[in-house]
């Protein structure tokens, strides 16, 4: 995992000893000069991508100040008038906010909960199969939907689940009335989550397959000699073996939780299911780009990003405590 080694922070009190600071500065400078002499061309090369990150990632972070302002396009983000926490106050007292938060959280939790265990089960099941042809076929087919676009996956979902679609035809044959999967708000989350699992389970399983392949076969051999059943071997060898991978996948899943697909939610959304399908990202899009309330939309987006970051840090902390595995050291 990414080893983020922060530069050594000078020990407390170092600032009062100017001589040491000067020495450190000088040595850093010397180090940079040495590196520059060797790599000046690479520094120039890296300049363009670095500019990209500054312009498209860090400048927007700075533009988040308009969440605390009454943004006017004429005055620009820096010239607009400060309003303190007004936008947030407006947001938190807005009756929509509670629903928004609830919808986002439930959908996100549901998604993590459903899409975490299934790839693991799939990988373990595939790992048990000895027939190479069958194994490859299942792997190939389940992996394929990952490469289909969100628009197409949602279209397929809509075509299948429409009131006159094939699924409802099947339900009708059994004698039940047609179910309005797409219009009934209560079905939105199920449709969203399970079409997502349909699309990504095979892809995520690949990562676990690799982890399973990395387990020492000798462990399985000796367990077999000891008379362990397949199920026991899965429980005591395979599951612990993929634990580190699973933890990291879970952290990443939770870390991306609040960033859940605007893309898909917006596509599956319609005026009928809005009660459960309106989530923070779709609200940001509508408030900001359709109603042109930039400050408000930015405030909502900032709130979302901060919550997301906090969740990631908390999960990472807990995972490190419990399992010893984390995103970074």
């Amino acid at each position: 995992m990414a080893t983020i080694t922060p530069h050594k922070i000078p020990p407390a009190g170092a600032a009062e000893r100017p001589s040491e600071l000067v020495v450190r500065r000088r040595s850093r400078r010397a180090e940079f000069q040495k590196s520059w002499r060797l790599h000046w061309q690479l520094y120039l090369l890296a300049l363009v991508p670095i500019a990209y990150f500054v312009i498209f990632k860090y400048v927007p972070m700075a533009f988040n100040v308009i969440a605390f302002k009454d943004y006017s396009p004429v005055l620009g983000p820096w010239g607009s008038e400060w309003v303190g926490l007004d936008n947030f106050q407006r947001l938190f007292t807005n009756p929509v906010f509670g629903t928004l938060l609830k919808n986002t959280f439930i959908l996100a939790f549901y998604l993590v909960l459903a899409s975490f265990p299934i790839p693991i089960l799939l990988a373990i099941a595939l790992n048990e199969i000895r027939n190479g042809w069958f194994k490859r076929t299942v792997q190939m087919v389940t992996y394929a939907p990952y490469f289909i676009s969100t628009v197409v996956v949602v279209s397929i979902t809509i075509l299948l689940l429409a009131p006159n679609g094939i699924v409802n035809d099947g339900i009708g044959n059994v004698g039940a009335g047609p179910i309005d999967f797409l219009g009934d708000p209560n079905f939105f989350r199920h449709v969203y989550v399970w079409s997502d699992v349909w699309q990504t389970a095979g892809y995520s399983a690949v990562i676990y397959m690799a982890a399973l392949a990395g387990i020492d076969p000798a462990l399985h051999e000796s367990a077999k000699v000891d008379g362990a059943s397949r199920l026991q071997r899965i429980r005591h060898i395979d599951l612990p073996g993929i634990m580190p991978t699973a933890v990291i996948m879970l952290i990443l899943g939770v870390g991306n939780m609040m960033a859940i697909g605007f893309e898909k939610a917006y596509l599956l959304q319609n005026s009928l299911n809005l009660a459960q399908s309106e989530i923070i990202p779709t609200y940001v899009y509508k408030t900001g780009l359709i109603n042109a309330d930039f400050s408000m939309a930015t405030a909502v987006g900032l709130f979302n990003s901060v919550v997301n970051l906090c969740l990631l840090l908390v999960v990472n902390f807990v995972a490190k405590r419990v399992t010893g595995n984390g995103l970074w050291r």
Partner: peptide, 25 residues
């Protein structure tokens, strides 16, 4: 031997954890 690589990498990874958001972008 590329001086500053860790700082730059950290700054890149940070953009994965915290995004500027739709409207500012």
């Amino acid at each position: 031997t590329f001086y500053g690589r860790n700082v730059i990498m950290t700054l890149l990874i940070f953009t994965m954890l915290f995004s500027g958001g739709l409207i500012p972008t």
